[in-house]
């Protein structure tokens, strides 16, 4: 007799007993009266805390985000317009402008300026592609001391990774839908 065969029914019974003891039914936690009191206590606490907690400075935050984000895009547009006027195709100009912005943001991050901009601008410096570059460089820089392969090389994707994953997945899905619709 292997212990596996022998112990399985026993463990199942034991689990069922445990569930009964701690108010588990169908695998879900039932609320005991004690927990309900705790919930009420937490609600009361949250009400108190939310009165004390400072509110975000909406007006200043929104203005900064709008202006900084707008200016970064304007810089991009200016580069696109310049290149298009020199005969570059719109698609190439757009890609080149993105690359230049990425380079500038990477440099600003390395020199320690982008972080200071981000303190003020919030989403204004996160949403543009420069924010993407900043997240990549910042994570890579931070783990430099753990080496160039598993420090910089691995951590460089800690923010870029999830972003690209979601971009790729949605793009492929849209592509598949199109294949399905056209066939």
């Amino acid at each position: 007799m292997t212990p596996d065969v022998d112990s399985r029914p026993f463990l199942m019974n034991k689990n069922r007993l445990l569930w009964a003891k701690y108010g588990l039914q169908g695998g879900k936690l039932m609320q005991t009266p004690d927990q309900k009191l705790k919930e009420l206590d937490r609600q009361e606490y949250e009400e108190l805390a939310s009165q004390i907690r400072p509110k975000p400075k909406w007006a200043a935050n929104l203005l900064w985000a709008f202006v900084v984000g707008g200016l970064i895009c304007t810089l991009g547009q200016w580069m696109v317009n310049f290149m298009v006027s020199r005969g570059v195709s719109l698609a190439d100009a757009s890609s080149s402008a993105s690359c230049i912005l990425i380079f500038l943001a990477a440099m600003a991050t390395g020199l320690g300026y982008y972080n200071q901009l981000g303190q003020r601008a919030g989403a204004g410096s996160i949403v543009p592609i420069t924010g993407f570059a900043n997240a990549i460089v910042a994570s890579a820089l931070e783990f430099k001391r753990e080496g160039y392969i598993f420090g910089v090389g691995a951590r460089i994707f800690s923010v870029a990774g999830p972003t690209l994953v979601f971009g790729f997945v949605v793009a492929v899905l849209v592509g598949l839908i199109k294949v399905f619709l056209t066939s």
């Binding site: 890609s95 993105s98 990477a106």
Partner: peptide, 15 residues
């Protein structure tokens, strides 16, 4: 272009 630029510039700046 964008992906490669971000990763290569990111790596170089980190170095």
């Amino acid at each position: 272009a964008g992906i490669t630029a971000a990763i290569v510039f990111g790596y170089l700046v980190a170095v």
